[in-house]
Simulated assay, not measured.
Amino acid sequence: MKNNSTKYLKISMFGEFSIKNEHHSLTASKQSGLTSFLLLGYLFSNKGNDITSDMLIDVLWPEGESNNPQGALRTLLHRTKKLLQPFFPGEDVELLTKNNNIYTWNPDIRLYIDIFEFEKSAHRAFREPDQTKQFELLEKANALYKGDFLPMFSHHSWVMFRNNYYGNLFIKTVNLICYHLSQEKEYEKTLELCNKALDYSPSTDETLHKQKIFTLLNLGRAQTALEYYYSLLALFNNSYGLDITESMADVYEAILSSMPNQFQTLSSLDETLRSRKVVSGSFYCNFDIFQNIYQINLRSARRTRSRYYLVLLTLNESDERSIITEDLKEEMDILHTIMQKKLRSNDVYTKSSICQYSLIINSPNEGGAEVIRHRIEDSYLKKRKHPNIELHVDFKEIV
């Protein structure tokens, strides 16, 4: 690949975006020109496909942010060409050619792009019948994956789509490597691979968590597996409002089967339940559980003198656009953190839509609900990062 007679570029887009060859090295940053790297990222990712000016404009200025997009594109292409000149010193190399409004890469320049090498190795491995060759291909694919695809451009829809695709492909390769290692009883290596993969992959994927737990059981670490299982339940419930006990039932049964065969007494059961660590703050749950709690409180309110209030918190942009922006998503995370810290331990809340939270509070009167309302509003105004986002709070008694 480094033959002097061959012009080449080595492009990495997993984890960080960098371009290298024997003459020069460049990593994407705000100082190096993010828009140029967005352009290059799209062009590299679609190598071999016909790319038009309109396609590039849609990617670079998706909301019509440029008054003269064709002129802006020409300027950006010129700036990007200058950015790449140090890779071919003393030569006037035309990287991109344009013919009939179609952009293509110069075929004389060899492009080594990690995402395509990763994809090729993974799919070859899935089709390879020979176990030894399959394992080699899987390890090659695994070594190429360094994290999310173009993370600095993760808010672009085409990047999100490709990132999900590569992430799922990575998880599939890891699970298959774990299978090979487990067949050879290489459990320590399997555990090491699981931990490394979980640093890269979305924590919402259950398969790698299951793989880790079964590996811990194979290593005879049933208590560690049980503690990890409980930490997963807390993670999914507190961070995502998801109850995964049903989908993890097989794991729990496997853990119990691996535990020492001893009966619980009523006292030991009580002690176990009391000693279980509970995250401080209010209770965050998924919408189904929230709905069940609402029904319980509704019946309780009708039978007793207890008073419960349903509160709806809505975030929207001041210009009332219907699209969900990155600003709005970031503010939702801020509001989530505030509710965790500012609500009481017996308050229950959930994410009821992409830009709304709902909560149930117990208060002797409407004044108590107003106090909580103002507490959230005041805290949010202090933590808000985007002044264009507004918080609206409504509540009603549950009767």
Rank of each mutant, 00 (worst) to 15 (best):
E253I: 02
L191S: 02
G281C: 02
H156L: 11
L232S: 09
A225T: 10
L266I: 05
V251P: 12
F214L: 10
Y187T: 00
C178M: 01
I213D: 01
D243T: 08
F263K: 13
G167P: 06
K196S: 15
Y229I: 01
S239D: 14
G167V: 08
G241Y: 13
L181E: 07
A249E: 13
Y187K: 05
N238T: 02
S203E: 12
Y228K: 00
I255F: 08
W158L: 04
K196M: 07
T224L: 08
N164V: 03
S282A: 15
N218Y: 12
K172F: 01
I289S: 03
L226K: 12
D288T: 13
T215E: 03
K212G: 00
Y284K: 11
D288C: 02
L226P: 02
E206M: 09
S257R: 06
S157G: 06
L193S: 05
R274A: 07
E188F: 02
Y165F: 09
G281Y: 05
Q291A: 09
K189P: 07
H155W: 07
Y229E: 05
L226R: 13
L256I: 13
T173C: 12
K277F: 10
Y284V: 03
N261W: 06
S267E: 15
Y187E: 10
A225F: 11
H155S: 11
L191G: 01
S280G: 07
L273G: 00
N163W: 05
F161T: 15
D205L: 14
N237G: 04
M160E: 15
G241T: 03
Y179R: 08
K212L: 10
V159E: 08
Q211V: 03
G167N: 14
L216T: 11
R221C: 03
Q264M: 14
E227V: 01
R162C: 01
A225Y: 12
K185R: 13
G220R: 13
A225K: 11
S203K: 14
P260V: 00
A234M: 13
S275N: 14
R221I: 07
E206K: 10
Q211T: 07
Q223V: 09
F283P: 03
L256V: 12
H180V: 00
K172I: 00
Q223W: 08
R162K: 14
Y165T: 10
S203G: 05
F170S: 02
N163A: 04
C194H: 08
Y228H: 11
N238R: 08
L232W: 09
N218W: 04
Q262H: 14
G167A: 13
V278A: 04
I177V: 01
T245A: 08
N164M: 00
S247N: 04
H180C: 07
F287W: 10
Y166D: 11
Y166P: 09
D205V: 05
A225D: 12
E184T: 09
V174Q: 05
Q262D: 08
D288R: 14
L235N: 04
I213Q: 03
L235R: 11
C285P: 06
D205Y: 15
N218H: 05
S239G: 04
L266Q: 14
L273H: 11
S247V: 07
S268D: 12
T224D: 15
C178N: 12
S239Q: 13
Y200H: 15
K196V: 03
E246P: 01
D270F: 14
H156R: 13
L198P: 13
D199R: 08
L256C: 02
D270H: 15
M259K: 08
P202E: 03
Q262W: 11
H156P: 01
I289V: 09
